[in-house]
Amino acid sequence: MQEAGQDIYGEARLIDAMVPRNAKILDAGSGPGRLGTYLQRAGHQVTGVDIDPKLIAEATRMCPEATWITSDLTDLLQALDVPEVAELGESGFDAIVCAGNVMTFLAESTRLPVLKNFRAVLKADGRAVVGFGGGRGYDFEQFFADVSAAGLQIEQTFSTWDLRPFATDSNFLVAVLTR
C-alpha cells in the first residue's frame, strides 16, 4: 500500500494529535505493529496486543522499545495484569486505537466484552478510537448499542480516518469513544 502511494499512518497520526507527548497508548489488535511503531517513535508509551504470535514477533522486531503482548482482546485484563473487577483509572491508557477492521474479526459474542475491556483500561479522560468498514458483519447501529451497553459514550463519529463526516449511508466508521 505504501509503495502505491497510499497513506498507511493516518490512524496513527490522528491518535498522535489527540494526546500529549509520552501518552500511554494501547494498540488493540496491533498486528505487526504498523501503528504502534509509529506512535512509539512519535514519543508515546505503546502497548500492542494481538492474538497472533507471529504478528507480535514481527512487531517486536520492528519496534523493540514498545511492549507487545500476545493475547485475545477478550483476555485483555489478564494480559495487562488488571484485576477483573478493577478499572485502571488514572493509571490507564490515554488512548486506545483499534483499527484495521479488528472489531469485525471478533466473534459476535465477544464484541461487548472487548468494549467493556476497553472501558476498564481507559483513563477517565481517555479516548478509544475504533474504525471498521461496513458490510463486514458488524452493523454500525449494533456497534453503537454495544458501545452504550459497555458503559462508553460516543464523542464523535467520522466516515474516514481523515475525519470526513459520518452519515447514515457511510460505508466506514471511525468512532471516538469516552468513558
Rank of each mutant, 00 (worst) to 15 (best):
T157V: 07
Y9G: 02
G10V: 00
K54P: 01
E155R: 08
P83E: 13
K116E: 14
V129R: 01
G36V: 01
C98K: 06
G5C: 04
G33Y: 08
F132C: 04
D7S: 02
V102D: 03
F118I: 09
D72F: 10
R21A: 12
L173R: 11
W68A: 07
P20E: 08
T70R: 10
I154P: 05
V19K: 00
S170K: 09
A4L: 12
D125S: 09
T104Q: 07
V19P: 02
F132I: 09
T110S: 15
K54A: 10
V46T: 02
D27T: 04
M62C: 03
L173Q: 13
G135P: 15
Q78P: 01
I25Y: 04
D139L: 11
S71V: 06
P113K: 09
F140Q: 10
G137E: 13
M103E: 02
M103L: 15
Q153M: 04
F105P: 03
Y9E: 07
T104E: 09
L115M: 11
T168N: 14
V85L: 12
E58I: 08
L163T: 13
R21G: 05
V97K: 03
D52P: 00
G100M: 08
F172M: 11
A59P: 07
L26W: 05
V46N: 00
D81E: 12
F166W: 15
S71E: 06
G31E: 05
R164W: 10
Y38A: 00
Q142V: 13
S170H: 13
D7F: 01
H44E: 08
V130K: 02
I154E: 01
N101G: 13
I69A: 04
E11L: 00
N101S: 13
K116S: 10
M18L: 13
Q78H: 10
D81K: 14
S148P: 00
A12R: 00
P32K: 07
A99P: 06
R111G: 05
S91I: 11
V130C: 03
V49C: 00
A17R: 10
Q142H: 13
T110H: 14
S170E: 11
A95F: 03
Q45N: 08
L177A: 08
P64E: 05
F143M: 14
Q45A: 08
D16Q: 10
F144Y: 14
I56E: 04
A57F: 03
A4Y: 06
A175M: 11
S109W: 02
L77N: 07
E84R: 12
A128K: 03
M62W: 03
V85E: 15
V121C: 04
D50G: 01
G31P: 02
P165Y: 12
F166S: 09
V97S: 10
V114S: 07
L80P: 11
T178H: 05
G29S: 07
V114W: 09
W161G: 04
I96G: 06
S148H: 09
A128Y: 06
L106E: 05
K54Y: 09
V121T: 07
F144M: 14
V46F: 00
I51L: 13
P113S: 09
K123D: 04
